[in-house]
Design a protein around this nucleic acid. Structure first.
Lengths: 220, 220
DNA sequence: ACCTGAACACCGTTCAAGT
DNA sequence: ACCTGAACACCGTTCAAGT
């Protein structure tokens, strides 16, 4: 048989899925999602843009492969918490998911914009379901809890990565909020302004995960 | 004085912010976010693309105005629950936010991609903060609860609107999940498959909001 | 088999010039 | 004051032709 692993007969290919995804992720980190174009990626690989379509049917296909690669190791990263109880293990899984998204510039946007169903994504979902079912939750509640935890984590990290480039002339930063609130129209926002503009996203994430876990505990 | 409301001296303008945002939202509903281009919007308004830049500095600016318009009336929609206790009022606000996003095609994507801080958005945030502080939460926890509720709702609705066009040849639908799980590698996913592929997003959203509210109740 | 070159049908944005 | 016309610097994607 002449599989792809056969010693090259002609020229060795300059392109393959793995190397291309890796280069795309590096480019993402350097320039962000908006600057990640097929043409720039091709240039980074020393090739013409059209050549990329030998390995990826569309740009969306490439982004999905990037999302799947980003998830490699999420479950393993959370597996250290084997000793803990089920709430600690769920918290560790949620933190591992956030960390995987944060590890790449615009990681949450890439993940939210694709429907990755690779082994890492399924492995993560299976791990969450396993903890929940071991804790005694019926399959229906376990499934809903999985989606809730995932959707919250993605929603939070999307906000977190969108908020990080503040401080520039971005009209949505803390200063703009303070201005908009200053006229007394929003008394409750005014009272909470310091807390609302605090950028401690890790504590905020822990707060949200904590609420979800306490809710689950109450429901068991 | 010669304000914008002065009877027109020359030709009446064919463009203004309000009409443009309205047309953009209609176009969004008909064609989706990916098909919403400045050129197509200009065509729908009987004008050249460049003319739009008299009212919006960038496309991002237009999208922000669209997000703010989408939020008009969210707080009012939830205000009917005046009689209920604080958990019911928070639930009503969360449901009103989801409803506002669902009301437009790709509404969650538009909202998540902008930093809208218009009166409607601030009014919504102020209402949530008001309920929480009346319930006795300190400003810090109230602020965190506001973000948690908002981020979960946006994350959920993003998923919900991305999942709706399933059934086509989308490789991420329920059928694909069933295939991927069929080989026994993911026992917990397999056990939860019916629940995982159920598309009852309203119940799923209620479950998530319920968890958050129970968590808040436990923390009070 | 793998990639080039060139095209097709678009984009967002800018700006002198018209009315 | 408001809009046109035309350009600039790009896009994603396709595909005959080369090697």
């Amino acid at each position: 048989m002449s599989s792809p692993s056969t010693p090259a007969r002609g020229r060795p290919p300059r392109l393959d899925r793995a190397r291309t995804v890796q280069t795309a992720l590096d480019l993402l980190d350097r320039s962000g999602l908006d600057a990640l174009t097929m043409r720039r990626l091709a240039e980074a690989m020393g090739v013409q843009a059209g050549a990329l379509y030998r390995h990826f049917a569309t740009k969306q296909d490439l982004l999905t492969a990037m999302a799947e690669r980003m998830m490699d190791g999420v479950t393993e990263a959370a597996a250290q918490t084997r000793g803990g109880d089920w709430t600690e293990r769920l918290a560790a899984l949620a933190h591992a998911l956030r960390a995987a998204l944060l590890a790449r510039r615009d990681g949450a946007r890439v993940f939210a914009g694709t429907h990755a169903t690779g082994a890492s994504v399924l492995g993560f979902a299976d791990a969450v379901m396993g903890v929940l079912r071991e804790a005694g939750f019926p399959a229906e509640d376990a499934a809903r809890a999985l989606y809730t935890l995932t959707n919250f984590t993605v929603g939070h990290t999307l906000e977190e990565q969108a908020a990080l480039p503040w401080g520039d002339a971005d009209p949505a930063g803390p200063a703009a909020l303070a201005d908009a609130v200053a006229d007394g129209t929003y008394p409750h926002l005014e009272a909470g302004l310091p807390a609302l503009t605090s950028a401690d996203f890790t504590r905020l994430f822990e707060f949200g995960v904590g609420l979800l876990l306490e809710g689950l505990r109450a429901r068991r």
